[in-house]
Design a protein around this nucleic acid. Structure first.
Length: 882
RNA sequence: GCCCGAGUGGCGGAAUGGUAGACGCAGGGGAUUCAAAAUCCCCCGCUGGCAACAGCGUGUCGGUUCGAGUCCGACCUCGGGCACCA
């Protein structure tokens, strides 16, 4: 009856480590053998792994490779629970794949350029480099105790000159291949600080520091020709089968392929050079419902009129105050200004339409000009009602269609409708059919042509900031824009700068800017723009395969390690980071830096949820909210003042709301394994997980229980009773099957549920022999190892496991142990469960039906009548319809 | 505004179109203890009922189906993204 012995009885057995103090609950000074002490055992095993070199990635032609990567962190200062969750997920995959026999690459680095370092330098003095390096040191120190299976020998930061120098080499190669060019683009300009602002630095149309009204201003900027790859990036999404469908859909919509008609209206009373206005429309079928033409405030016509007409100048200036984000434009009140210019309808010379400048027309999309058909576009309808323009129906609902009132009639393009103003297709046709017909008819009449356009714009990479990778070009009076010579790379950021004035310190650096022209040698000026930090993160995954190479990549290393087999990160990167990386991989292939197989660099993608926490709020004397850290709260009150707090439901952890839990505190209190287990256990990984102190404590208790169970098993006397062995082994194989499948399916919460169940089974195992218990405990250690590697090592060692569990192969379930002879089937009557029957697993349908019909509840429900229908789903259910 | 998700007990969640609530937390009861902590055992969707049991129940409304948390349509709420936050 060993299994019923309380752990206390087992561990107080003479010779087994002596009695535990029962008087002091959390006393850590007791015998090292007697209780679970993560603070002692975690560093011990981390040292053992390090000594054994377990996690150093090695090219091993004899083994398949596996590259697992978590999106690298921005060195903000401290790690948070989101990091813990992200890196634990990657670690589970890495350790599991290693156990499966793969040669694993699991690197870590730092996305180290970016605005916060400059902001810190401005606010607190110091240098962005110093701030960044300090943060990296602190965060690395916080990550190390987590026991992640990372190959730290490959670590780098994107602000290392060894990294960004190679990025400059890539840039030059891309420039040579025609993948980079310059053009004008609008930025947010703060007229007081005389500086360019990021979108997040613009609050309600004003600069975040100066408070000045932000203006849109045009600057000449560098662009990557990502739009050349629109079609390919779109079509290749179909091949990314191991990506979440939602991410592929978001990218598809972002790239936005559309089929439409491009044609020109001829103008009346327009300034010279504007005798035609080119428009693009995806609804040429509604051309007979056109009632106005609208151009963007950034359209050449608007710019021309602006110079000659005060009213236009004022309107355009107003439009430019709206900001640069699409969101701001879409949310702004739709406004237009009649230019007085008229155009002729292409089908009817006598039909004239007014030309407006409208704030909702984007210059970046299509031609920057549209025609409006109010009957079939809500925004056009609102516009038409506002400015008294005609509303002309071109089609109505096929059945009982009525003319448009205040709601535009916009059915799906696949729905058949009744055409009242068709020009060459049947009266009943779908939008799709009508669009294709309209394009064909217009082409044959010489009015424009059918074109495919994309929403995706070229990627502007210029940033007017210091803390980024310098763009390696030189501006020469004689030669123009000249690329720096490769042998002059890296173009290193100067250290002697200051942030005492707003703007980019590189612009006013006394010596750095001056350099000889790489072509003619004449005194010239360096480009002072640096690169968007998305550039840094668009190829770091490739650099990890050869982080010290003197070229951007190493062919042999890239050939072996690429692609990333599993990429893990936040859903917030679903579009930009992932799309830019996909483009960069293609560009790196074109410039000879990656093999062809790498153009889709991430084989599988997993997007994990956030870690959330309740927010605790009180109000100050003036009624302003005051937030409190979780550790300041006890029983719904602020510990110090006793004031009751308002508990706001779970939200993403953020410093300003103070709903943060510092992983360092959790590790100190409970150990890394508790933090790791908890973030993996409670929620499915793609969903948000709420951190609760109760959950963390419960996790710690559970791990201590497992430890004590292992201790008890290790101390069991050998016995020859083995009556319970078969049942235990069956449970063990079921657990192996369940846990393995859960990990394969990224359902770590279910893997942990399986581990709980198996632990309970092991705990209650009756009549099992010592040998079987030990075998089961060893398998438990193996299965726990990806989540709680330190505790797993300890159990493995206790149970006489050979070597390190980190090096042990993954257990394999014996299929024969998974099947049972009889199964229980639920019986439904009219779809509601009413009874259960036990049948042989391989019983034929007829026999199952017979057994089901003889069940008491069924006989009662039938009341002597024959069932209307009996549905037997073998192995699942029986439904009797009465 | 546009694009993409998510909504299941007091809580986190589980469920190839087939027994809704696995596993865990919190809570309740009991054992052990001088007592507490810790540990162990049992109960635990809601309503009615002493009980057997019955009815209801997966954001809302409607539909498909022998059978819907799951599929379809409309809506509500919350979250992510919207090109210079990373």
């Amino acid at each position: 009856m060993l299994w019923t012995l309380a752990p206390r009885a087992a561990i107080t057995t003479p010779g087994q480590g002596g009695p535990v103090s029962h008087l002091r609950g959390k006393n850590m000074s007791g015998d090292a053998q007697a209780r679970y002490q993560p603070q002692a055992l975690e560093p011990k095993w981390q040292e053992a792994w390090e000594k054994a070199g377990c996690f150093t990635a090695r090219r091993d032609p004899a083994r398949p490779k596996y590259y697992v990567l978590e999106m690298f962190p921005y060195p903000s200062g401290r790690i948070h629970m989101g990091h813990v969750r992200n890196y634990t997920m990657g670690d589970v995959v890495a350790r599991y794949k290693k156990a499966q026999g793969f040669s694993v690459l699991h690197p870590m680095g730092w996305d180290a350029f970016g605005m916060p370092a400059e902001n810190a330098a401005m606010q607190e003095g110091g240098h962005p480099a110093e701030w960044t390096h300090n943060n990296i040191a602190v965060m690395k120190g916080q990550m190390k105790p987590l026991g992640l299976s990372i190959d730290w020998s490959r670590e780098f930061a994107t602000c290392d000159v060894e990294y960004y120098g190679q990025q400059q080499a890539l840039f030059l190669d891309m420039l040579e291949e025609g993948l980079v060019y310059r053009k004008n683009a609008v930025v947010n300009w703060d007229p007081v600080d005389m500086t360019v602002l990021a979108n997040e630095q613009v609050i309600d149309g004003k600069g975040w520091r100066s408070g000045a009204e932000v203006e849109r201003r045009e600057l000449t900027q560098w662009f990557f020709r990502i739009s050349d790859y629109s079609a390919e990036l779109l079509d290749a999404l179909d091949g990314l089968e191991k990506w979440p469908e939602k991410v592929r859909l978001m990218q598809r919509n972002w790239i936005g392929r559309s089929r439409g008609l491009q044609f020109a209206f001829s103008t009346i009373d327009a300034p010279e050079g504007f005798d035609r206005i080119e428009v693009y429309t995806t609804r040429p079928d509604t051309l007979m419902g056109a009632s106005f033409v609208a151009v963007s405030p950034d359209h050449p016509l608007a710019k021309h009129l602006e110079r000659h007409d005060a009213e236009v100048a004022e309107f355009v200036a107003e439009c430019r105050r709206v900001g640069t984000t699409e969101e701001a434009l879409e949310k702004a009140e739709k406004k237009g200004l009649d230019t007085g210019i008229r155009v002729r309808h292409p089908f009817d010379n006598a039909w004239e339409l007014p030309v407006y400048i409208a704030n909702f027309i984007l210059m970046d999309y299509g031609t920057g000009a549209i025609f409006g058909c109010p009957a079939h576009d809500q925004r056009d309808l609102d516009f038409a009602r506002k400015y008294g323009l005609p509303v002309i129906d071109t089609f109505i609902a096929a059945e009982a269609g009525a003319p448009v009132g205040n709601t535009a009639f916009v059915p799906p393009k696949t729905e058949p409708v009744r055409w009242t103003r068709a020009f060459g297709w049947p009266e009943i046709a779908t939008g799709e059919e009508a669009v294709e017909a309209a394009i064909g008819i217009c082409e044959s009449r010489g009015i424009g042509e059918g074109v495919t356009k994309f929403r995706l714009r070229d990627w502007g990479l210029s940033r007017q900031r210091y803390w980024g990778c310098p763009i390696p070009v030189v501006h020469c009076d004689a030669c123009g824009v000249v690329p720096e010579k490769k042998e002059n790379l890296p173009v290193e950021l100067p250290r002697d700068i200051s942030f005492d004035k707003p703007g980019n310190p590189l612009d006013r650096h006394p010596t750095w800017r001056n350099c000889p022209c790489p072509k003619c040698g004449a005194p010239s000026l360096r480009e002072t723009d640096t690169m968007d930090t998305f550039v840094d993160s668009s190829w770091y995954f490739a650099r990890f395969t050869a982080p010290r190479a003197t070229t951007p990549t190493d062919a042999a290393e890239a050939e072996y390690w690429m692609n990333v087999d599993q990429y893990i990160g936040g859903i917030e990167h679903a579009i930009l980071h992932l799309l830019y990386s996909r483009f960069f991989a293609r560009a790196m292939h074109k410039t000879g830096h990656l093999p062809a197989k790498c153009i889709e660099p991430f084989d599988a993608l997993f997007t994990q949820g956030m870690v959330t926490h309740e927010i605790y709020m009180t109000r100050d004397a003036r009624g302003r909210p005051v937030y409190h850290l979780p550790e300041e709260i006890e029983d719904g009150k602020v510990k110090v003042t006793g004031e009751a707090v308002r508990v706001i439901p779970s939200a993403k952890m953020s410093k300003s709301k103070k709903n943060v839990v510092d992983p360092v505190n959790i590790i100190e209190q409970f150990g890394a394994d508790t933090a790791r287990w908890f973030v993996m256990s409670d929620s499915p990984p793609e969903r948000d997980v709420e951190w609760t102190s109760a959950g963390a404590e419960a996790t710690h208790k559970h791990l201590a229980r497992v430890w004590a169970l292992s201790r008890r098993i290790a101390d069991m006397p050998a016995s020859d009773s083995g009556q319970g062995d078969e049942a235990l082994m069956r449970a063990m194989h079921r657990a192996i099957d369940e846990v393995t499948r859960a990990i394969e399916g990224f359902s770590f919460n279910k893997a942990i549920a399986g581990l709980y169940s198996f632990t309970n089974t092991l705990h209650r195992a009756e009549d099992a022999s010592h040998a079987a218990m030990q075998a089961a405990a060893r398998v438990l250690a193996q299965m726990m190892a990806p989540m709680v590697p330190h505790l797993a090592e300890e159990i493995w060692a206790m149970q006489g496991g050979e070597g390190l569990v980190a090096e042990a192969p993954w257990p394999v379930a014996d299929k024969a142990m998974l099947v049972s002879d009889t199964i229980t089937l639920p019986i439904q009557i009219n779809g509601k469960r009413k009874a259960e029957i036990a049948v042989a697993a391989d019983a034929p349908k007829e026999e199952v039906e017979k057994t089901a019909l003889s069940a008491d509840a069924v006989i009662k429900a039938l009341g002597g009548k024959a069932p209307k229908k009996v549905i037997v789903v073998p192995g699942r259910i029986v439904n009797v319809v009465v």
